[in-house]
Design a protein around this nucleic acid. Structure first.
Lengths: 221, 221
DNA sequence: AACAATCTTTACATTTTCTTTACCCTTTTC
DNA sequence: GAAAAGGGTAAAGAAAATGTAAAGATTGTT
């Protein structure tokens, strides 16, 4: 059953939405401010978020960029094109102006959930004896927990998300520099070396294969 | 560069969209009826489709279900909720009513292209028993993976992208020198020889044919 | 401020790939 | 048919990319 987070300080609209969505067979969660929404998200991962723009405290515009991986439909009384453009380009999946038609909203929710399930990424990655639990950020090798640094974790995750695929050095560097701004190729080599060593110490195997001139990939068994 | 198919029988709106999208850096293709749209799609795969509803002959509603795998934004003068719901649930990615704001449309196009690139489908080149998966940088010959060097991969890819065409030595050298600055013709010959050998070891066949004085091409079967 | 964990740089060994060279074969040209 | 030019392959040396250890720089924590 799909779970939808409703973020709106207006009790009436919130209740109406909750009742409507429940009747349609969705589970709902409520939040009444931006900060509360983020708090909820720190422990839960709903399938979709309905986000009002005018919120007490943290504004909807400020909340949006902090949400990743979950489609957000903006619900707003503001119908200015500038707002729409800003939020759509800022990561919103759709923008519906109040007052909205209930059936249209339901249809747009369906569209987003349809998209999301097509893109859905599993929360547990498995590759032979390697396991990554994305949500808890944990890695286990042959049943034992591995202590990886943030960078090592990011590298392994990227490789395991595309098994049997070559992950280019360029892509790796790009992703890693989201956390740490500058990362030379020499540095990447060292991280991979360290990662290999940790995995080897726990399993005896080498899971990572270099593809000369291109990048790295998980070894075929 | 992203390609957008504009399906609209209204020349003025179509021209306006084409000009606008071109200015934004998109490639555009035009179709003026539903049947023409489907005809275009039988040979081309644009990244996104802007579909008008009221079309001569085959209606937009009838065209939509025949489109799969490409996001469709409906552009329509009809603003009735029934239409919106029907089309959104019927597979449309978004629904924009005419008259629309240009900036909003561009933002919604960006959103759809953003979604689509996340779901990126593998692009595969095929030639008899040879397969290249461009996205994962893999080559398989008769089902078995081939270990090609960067240069060998580049040569094979170039040949397979233009099958039945002769790829000139000049062009090959030009492309190869993107990676490695200096590459003489003698060197190219050796690369092709090595490539042939690897393919031959896996398949028993020789796929590459020399065209005297000009360059190389894939052998006709 | 001292400490620990992590990341980056440096340096060098190792491995793979690329280019050159040499020699032989095939096709074209006269 | 002989000379010239184009193409195929093997082998060796040159160049480039990778693997790893160790030292220096950065960051965050107590």
């Amino acid at each position: 059953m799909k779970n939808i987070l409703i973020v709106d300080d207006d009790i009436n609209i919130g209740n109406m939405l909750e009742e409507l969505l429940t009747k349609e067979g969705y589970q709902t969660t409520r939040a009444y401010s931006g900060t509360e929404a983020l708090f909820v998200l720190s422990s839960k991962r709903p399938d979709l978020i309905l986000l009002d723009l005018m919120l007490p405290g943290l504004d909807g515009k400020e909340v949006l960029p902090k949400i990743t991986g979950i489609p957000v439909i903006i619900l707003s009384a503001k119908s200015s094109v500038e707002d729409k453009v800003e939020l759509l380009l800022g990561g919103a999946a759709d923008y519906v102006t109040k007052p909205f038609d209930i059936k249209e909203l339901l249809a747009r929710i369906t569209v987003q959930l349809r998209n999301a399930s097509a893109t859905a990424s599993p929360s547990i990655l498995k590759y032979e004896d390697l396991l990554i639990d994305i949500s808890s950020h944990q890695v286990s090798v042959c049943g034992e927990a591995a202590r990886l640094t943030r960078t090592e974790y990011a590298i392994l995750k990227l490789l395991m998300q595309n098994p049997s695929q070559v992950v280019t050095k360029t892509l790796l560097l790009e992703r890693l520099s989201e956390d740490t701004p500058d990362c030379m190729e020499s540095s990447l080599r060292v991280h991979i070396s360290n990662l290999r060593k940790k995995l080897r110490d726990l399993s005896g195997k080498d899971y990572i294969e270099a593809v000369w001139g291109i990048g790295f990939k998980m070894k075929e068994e």
